[in-house]
Design a protein around this nucleic acid. Sequence first.
RNA 1: GGGGCCGUCGUUCAGCCAGGUUAGGACGCCAGAUUGUCAAUCUGGAAGUCGCGGGUUCAAAUCCCGUCGGCCCCGCCA
Length: 591
Amino acid sequence: MIRSHSCGELSLPQVGQTVTLAGWVASRRDHGGVIFIDIRDRYGLTQIVFDSEENAPLHAVADRLRNEYVISITGKVSVRPDESENLHLPTGRIEIRAQTLELLNEAKPLPFSVEDDVHTSESLRLEHRYLDLRRPKMQQLLQLRSQVSHLTRQYLHEKQFIEVETPILTKSTPEGARDYLVPSRVNPGDFFALPQSPQLFKQILMIGGLDRYFQIARCFRDEDLRLDRQPEFTQIDLEMSFVEREDIMQLIEDLIRLLFKDTKHIDLPNPIPRLTYEEAMSRYGTDKPDQRFELLLQDLSEFAKTCDFQVFRRAIESGGMVKGLIIPKGAAFTRNRIDNLIETAKEFGAKGLAWVKINDEGQLDSSIAKFLNTAALREALPSANPGDLLVFVADQATTVHQVLGRLRLLLGEELQLVDRTRWEPLWVTDFPMFEYDEASQRHVALHHPFTAPHPEDIPLLDSAPLEAKTLAYDLVLNGFELGGGSIRIHSPNMQEKVFDLLKISKEEAREKFGFLLDALESGAPPHGGIALGLDRLIMLLGQTESIRDTIPFPKTQKAQCLMTHAPSSVAPEQLQELSIRTTTKKPTADS
RNA sequence: GGGGCCGUCGUUCAGCCAGGUUAGGACGCCAGAUUGUCAAUCUGGAAGUCGCGGGUUCAAAUCCCGUCGGCCCCGCCA
């Protein structure tokens, strides 16, 4: 070892010892006769003193040190003189009086300085990720990630889970997200796909009698990126046999509470509250509500039935609804601000946004006031107070919920209603089995086509499939979907029926999922599972703004790596070997 | 596929709306001074094809068009 201690551990008890530290030069303060160097490693920062009176030749060497040089120094741990302690540093009561200095490596002046409050663009950070990773914040996030993985493994091993690796080169299943494809050289013209999730393999493992499987699994989806979406991401993926929905939810609740407690000393509620999909949509306009603030959707449909405002009446008559938000103190909004709100609502898909101010005397102040009975409206919205602004959307339920759900989030931010100290986990259950997709004129699975229906809803599959609910559950935290799972279909007959309802023909089902159908016919146990997004979990636990901060080498929004410049063109010989011809005009790389 | 914001010394910003001397500040860098700093300080210095291409103009960082790149959002993400 070329060090005896780390840069974060020395303090008063070690005073008098001779130690060797190694690390990067974090800062150099040259006072002429004396030079202070802060040496940094993953564990912290320690001040080194070079005194020209004590050791003139060494002081001369220290004079040449620059930021981010890699050095090793040996010296004596000493108490700092009075008045010169730095109480902001854990090592701030001591310093090392240098006796020898070894320069292990130099560094050019760097494109940005290694500090926590980076004043630099993210693209530069990504291009020089090795520098960015030296920042304490990035190191803490990666350490947190490692800790969460470790605790999860430990917890699941204790519960008899077996960690299994499923294939990365697998079969393309074109339902759902786009696949990343990998050409097969040995089978010209054929392609592997990278897994979007280990879904089918983990079900096969249950049929294979593994009973309890987990994997910290890399997943790939070739879709456009977002703040919380990367093309490759990691899921804590698990599956269990002979269980019911409650068993899995309980297991995951305990895990997530343990993770928050052990890493950040945060006590999540026990039990974690639950809403059905229907309740979530109805109150929050979304299936992943952020419950750190109220601003609930208010149902005004009853009032709308009898009021004189045609827009409201017609919405009800054509099978829609009228819902609104009570914006506290919103009566103070200027006309301009309300107009902007209306524009935003239209961008979100509304035909318009009706608004009513309740003035300080309790009277309505609005262009549609003449159509509304003040007393009836106040009675329909008992929680609205003088000084509030009411906004309403009248439309079909889907539109009303989507528009108001998004307005709610926007206003929550704008009006600073979000309490950032709160942690609000939530289970959302009883998702519908299907949605009707207008574009393709057929039912599509809301979750995935292997999700089991509620036992009492099975008859609905024939009579009213859109009303059938599933045994699915999503875990939501502060408005982010942390993960989701379900009890799966284990009956081959039910699985065929669901494929049928999804208009997947027998031949198609056989070709895509034949192995699963065969497996289901060979003694499949009842089973279910869940997958949690590890990257998002770390983002929330680590309180960082982007999923990219939790991934050591993330991609940009164009799905590129700025450090390696992947993806890149390849040599023509490589393509030829793979029997591939590209249609772009871009030149291929020279070999 | 669509909408928005951004691109100026190594870095981060100002300048752009209202075109006109040597494009300016801070940090960093280089040199010198400095024996108790920890955002060290003081003095001096170097450093920019204003993302790229085209256009308008006597004159473009500034106005117009295109293009490339980064970020945010919609679509998409069973």
